[in-house]
Write a protein that binds this DNA or RNA. Structure first.
Lengths: 191, 191
DNA sequence: CAGGATGTCTAGCGTTGCTAGACTGGGGCC
DNA sequence: GGCCCCAGTCTAGCAACGCTAGACATCCTG
């Protein structure tokens, strides 16, 4: 019962991750509308029902990709914040890193924030990577000051709005840096 | 050729609007995923191909609904702005009206800003209602001050971010008013 | 009154997410 | 060791999707 079933479990875990990365790659190269269960199954060289033995449905696969994305975003933001010498510059660095992430991996960003997912936000069972992302913004504000969470929410909203409106062509895609600078100067003074 | 074909044209225009309002009602009561060409056709009591004699495809129907929405949003914002006695209160009033609109008609807002549409933004052939919405924000800032457009873009982004993150449960849906106030105080001083 | 244009329909194509039922092969019990 | 059973995988198919071809009817024009 031991060795063989252990190997199977290992293989199963490996295949689980294989599905996630295949979905992500497919989405990043051809967009999420090209990610169908058939194409995904063909890509991982298994039949469709195998996908459903790993995930409850397509949404769950998207959620898994999104979760990976939140982990990477948290890393990305943390690195940017820690590389900044001063607190004010930290906020600016984190904001820029956020937009860089959003425009650099549009499909991943879409999975995290736009497509319907099963992920729980702002709740006790919120996955750790999601909290970590939010906390990176919170950390940019003065621990003594009140309303750090509020500041983080508003900043995050603004960045998300810029990212998605610009990606969809609702506002000119150029001039993102200018908008960030403008936003920061309004928020930095009251840190 | 006159009377009869005129009547037909009238009927055709009437049916055109009928399709749009049916799509909108269906979306507002059951969500956009319930708006299929079959159900829509059944609702307007015609067969599917009739829809395609009026619109290029489903996206075009969504776009038409969105365009109606932009007209209403522009009205809504203008009324809010004009009802405010002072410029600073005008910005606050417009922002609140915007979020009120977004949370009050979520399906309509989705058609305008999230679903894929054929509408052109920030371009010469941008429809008038879209420009009108943007201009309502611009009008809230000092005509002598520079960067009115930039301010409008950033404010709009922030509002959109709040609306969509809150609707999707990414940030707590309560406390929207607090966020708006917080945002305004950062932007009002430099009007 | 014939001919053509216009409008609407039925029927169907290809694709989607998802699932039931058959088949296979190794693990545990007598 | 031999039998049964369960986990895993597959083929095949369902209902619903957006969209369209081709047949039918209906009305204006010459």
């Amino acid at each position: 019962m031991s060795a063989i079933s252990e190997r199977r479990e290992r293989e199963r875990a490996h295949r689980h991750q294989l599905i996630i990365t295949a979905a992500r790659e497919l989405a990043e190269t051809e967009g999420w509308e090209a990610v169908t269960t058939r194409r995904l199954a063909e890509r991982v060289e298994y039949s469709q029902p195998v996908l459903y033995s790993h995930f409850a449905g397509k949404d769950a696969i998207v959620s898994a990709v999104a979760l990976d994305g939140f982990g990477e975003l948290a890393d990305h933001l943390r690195r940017a914040r820690q590389a900044a010498p001063e607190p004010e510059q930290a906020l600016r660095a984190v904001c820029r890193a956020y937009l860089e992430f959003a425009t650099g991996r549009p499909a991943l960003y879409q999975a995290m924030f736009i497509l319907p997912t099963d992920l729980k936000f702002a709740s006790p069972e919120t996955p750790a990577p999601l909290r970590a992302c939010f906390d990176e913004f919170v950390s940019c504000f003065d621990p003594d000051g009140e309303r750090r969470e509020l500041s983080a929410e508003v900043i995050w909203s603004a960045l998300h709005g810029m990212a998605v409106l610009s990606e969809g062509g609702r506002i000119p895609p150029g001039g993102q840096a200018e908008r960030v600078d403008f936003l920061i100067t309004r928020f930095a003074g009251v840190r």
